[in-house]
Design a protein around this nucleic acid. Structure first.
Lengths: 210, 210
DNA sequence: GAAGTTATGTGAATAATATCACATAACTGT
DNA sequence: ACAGTTATGTGATATTATTCACATAACTTC
């Protein structure tokens, strides 16, 4: 691939470009300029070119980018040409909704395991047929079903313990929806999603500007 | 409130500090150093001090920060000492789960309106008693119930049209869960939440590192 | 096939952000 | 009240990220 140090922000944006390119492909657009793509993604055109330049030359000067090609290249860069198996830990309102949420499937992610501690839930099946295991079966089930990424939607109090078990089971990617900073070894990559933080920044902006 | 230009990243972190301080308060910790708080929040201690310095001096040298005081100060900075009313637009899996999600309430946010287009849903009430209105009633209802922030959890295809209506209704803060870049006038502040992007960055990290 | 047009790729310039390092101020104990 | 200790507040420095600006390459037209 490439050996320069890639800015984290670049990776995030590649994912945004990918989404937009997917839409464009569905609309049968086959060539797009960095300028137009930039407008659609809400970024600067030079930014897009710089981001892509970290990985190679994917465009045609004077023309633009072939939508299908670029989409394929970005998927390749992000490692999305293979299958990724997910485990959902915590099947409350949010966890249940996310398992059902179409976007994961659309992007090639598959839930192969689900966990909770509630005896009412353990042993039952989700609408998609997935069996709910008990959280203390994580290690066994994760290995068995080749889970690559764990998604934590437990209460904050349980998140660290769940993270520990996921790491122990050999997982090194965690998407954390619990509103705590979980501690993991360096081998494990954690992404936090906390929409109350986003809401707070909105509140701040409204407070100072209006 | 302040006069220097505040980095966006600072605001985001203030919200993180706030969460942690809230937990500390519940645990009856009354003083904390930037170093310990930093560890809990996963940031650099100097970062915390710098962030706070934009707004004043809140600590005691040689001692640390009084947890309760600092919490109050940050809430004040972020504009969270008042009430914020939310409207949920789109009551699919995700929207319904979020309305029920305890975190919003915990942070002082209140849902005062909910919208959908599905005739099956319009006219019904959510578990919390909130009446579901039709999306084309947004302007009227938003004004009537003093909604400050709109949350969009519609399919991507509907997001822009919903955003337009929210703006028209006088809303200038939007939390967007739909996987599209919505266009709004400058007066309106949009925060995007897209967990498939977070998942993609995890996939990337797993791909390059092992 | 030469001139004109367009949009990429990229070094240089700028801006934003994070970290260091230490002077400063508040507590503690003698 | 003074010396010792601790942790803040902040200027200086380092790092990272974004934008500009233009040379370069591919297509188009005459």
């Amino acid at each position: 691939m490439k050996f320069a140090k890639i800015p984290m922000a670049t990776i995030t944006r590649l994912s945004v470009y990918m989404r937009t390119l997917q839409d464009l492909l569905e609309d049968d657009v086959d060539v797009i300029s960095s300028e137009r793509l930039a407008r659609l993604c809400g970024v600067n055109p030079a930014q897009i070119r710089k981001d892509l330049a970290y990985f190679g030359e994917f465009g045609v000067r004077g023309v633009g980018y072939r939508v299908g090609d670029l989409l394929g290249q970005i998927k390749d860069i992000l490692g999305l040409t293979r299958r990724w198996n997910l485990a959902m830990v915590g099947l409350g309102n949010l966890g249940s909704a996310l398992v059902r949420h179409a976007n994961f499937l659309k992007h090639g992610y598959t839930f192969t395991a689900a966990f909770d501690v509630d005896p009412q839930k353990v042993g039952k099946r989700l609408p998609n047929g997935l069996l709910i295991n008990h959280v203390n079966e994580i290690e066994e089930v994760v290995k068995d079903r080749d889970v690559n990424v764990g998604i934590i939607t437990t209460p904050a109090s349980a998140a660290q313990s769940v993270a520990n078990q996921l790491v122990l089971a050999g997982i090194n990617g965690i998407l954390n929806f619990a509103p705590v900073q979980i501690q993991v070894p360096d081998c494990c990559h954690v992404e936090n999603v906390d929409f109350t933080i986003s809401l707070d920044t909105i509140a701040y902006h409204l407070s100072v500007s209006g």
